[in-house]
Amino acid sequence: MTVDYRRTTLELAPPGSQVRVVEIRHHSGQARRLMELGVVPGAVVRVVSNSAGPVVIEAGSARFAIGRGLARKIVVEVVEQ
């Protein structure tokens, strides 16, 4: 099996990129909320900003801010830089 170099976590996804959610490694109320918001495995979201604070993503027409701790547990692959 080859290592997919595009695979990373949301925390490290570059701003402006489109990423596809692969897995959410977190089990809590907030992870469930994420799924309710449409951030589910397979969904493609856009990373709006990602500097020091929370990661801001756009899913559909809605924007969310996700804390870094939570973002670290969301495995994504970059679809488009």
């Binding site: 907030q30 909320r33 918001l37 929370p54 809605a62 969310f64 801010a65 804390g67 701790g69 939570l70």
Partner: peptide, 10 residues
């Protein structure tokens, strides 16, 4: 429990 931030930005 660690508070995780998840806020919708309307």
């Amino acid at each position: 429990e660690v508070p995780e931030l998840l806020v919708e930005l309307p």
